[in-house]
Amino acid sequence: MGHAADRRPGTRVDRMMTVPAAVSRSDRASATREAILNAAERLFAEEGLFAVSNRRVSEAAGQGNNAAVGYHFGTKTDLVRAIAHRHNGPIERTRARMVAEVGETDDTRAWLACMVRPVTDHLADLGRPTWFARFSVQAMADPGYHRLMAEESLSSSSLRRALHGLQASTPHLTREVGEERREMFRHLVLNVCAVRERELAEGEPTRWPTWDDTATGLIDALYGLMTAPMTPIGTIRR
């Protein structure tokens, strides 16, 4: 008569039986994390970060355990960082390639393209509907998360290089005015993308046919912003 397989812990049979189970648990955990990220990004984009609790995110992600967000991510801040991080990866790869292609140049438009097109290309690649642009606007407008989002963006070496190139290509701007206009730059890009994202999601007419056209329009506007002369402080504006 054959002997029953040895299923004692640590034996080959035991390992054969537990590895698939471990893989299955890992797959389920990954799927749960992805569901939470998707639900959180949508809710934060539509309602704002302050208005949405971790409990609501767990429910929207189809999790029976209301503490699922805390278990998989920790705090809401950790969840917001995770959402930003998963988008920043593909954006960074595109921008790194563009910055390498630009090399050393004083062409303001080239540096603007390095900053704008990686974002619009990513939104185009996501398909529709998307929530990332609206999520970013909500997060940047929230005093509790503005700094986190800025730090996440500036962790990108290619973005820092593009900012340096843009600054070098606009030497007529003082440091203070340059910072002021780059802040306007961020708001313009995020809000224009958020408006188009909402229009696409709701089936409304859009100003530009494609995300590529949106980038072109933004670059034109930003070129005007960054190359415009300065009015000296205290001058009466007419």
Rank of each mutant, 00 (worst) to 15 (best):
P20S: 10
W208L: 11
D6A: 08
L188G: 02
P129L: 05
L154M: 13
A221Q: 13
V57G: 00
A201C: 10
D213W: 02
L123N: 01
E199D: 15
H72Y: 15
H187K: 06
R33H: 05
R95S: 07
R86N: 10
R238D: 09
T130R: 01
S169V: 07
S136D: 11
I83P: 00
R95T: 06
E199Y: 07
R8L: 09
A67M: 12
S24K: 13
E179L: 10
W208C: 11
T11A: 07
R93H: 10
G178D: 10
T18C: 06
A82R: 11
R12L: 10
G62Q: 07
L166A: 01
C114L: 07
H87I: 02
R15S: 09
T11V: 07
L163S: 04
H72L: 11
L37M: 10
Y71A: 12
V19F: 13
G224F: 09
D27G: 13
A51N: 13
E46G: 03
P232L: 05
G10L: 03
H87C: 08
W211A: 00
M140H: 11
H85G: 09
L222F: 03
E92A: 15
F135W: 04
V80F: 00
G224L: 08
Q138F: 08
P209T: 12
S153I: 04
A5D: 13
R207V: 15
D121E: 15
T32K: 04
T105N: 07
L218F: 03
E152I: 07
G48I: 02
A22K: 14
D125C: 13
G62F: 06
H3G: 12
E46W: 03
H187S: 13
T130K: 00
V192R: 00
R86Q: 13
L126V: 03
G234D: 08
S156A: 06
H87S: 15
E202A: 13
V102E: 01
T75Y: 03
P129R: 04
P9N: 09
P129A: 06
A228I: 13
M149W: 02
L37Y: 04
H164N: 11
T235Q: 12
Y71I: 14
F185L: 06
R86Y: 05
T174A: 06
T206G: 11
R128N: 11
D78S: 10
T235H: 12
M230R: 09
H3Y: 11
E197A: 08
W111Y: 03
F185I: 01
M16D: 08
V23K: 14
R15L: 14
L126M: 08
A110P: 01
G217Y: 05
D6Y: 06
A113Y: 02
Y71S: 12
G64N: 05
H3P: 04
T130N: 02
F50V: 14
R55A: 11
T174D: 14
A21L: 15
A201N: 12
T214R: 00
S26W: 14
E101G: 06
R147A: 09
Q167L: 05
E151P: 01
T210A: 09
G217K: 05
Q167T: 10
G103Q: 06
H122G: 04
Y71D: 09
T108M: 09
A21D: 12
G165I: 01
A150H: 07
N65W: 14
R56T: 05
H72M: 14
G203N: 05
G74I: 04
S153L: 07
D6G: 08
L188P: 02
H72Q: 12
H172R: 06
R28G: 08
A68S: 14
T94Q: 12
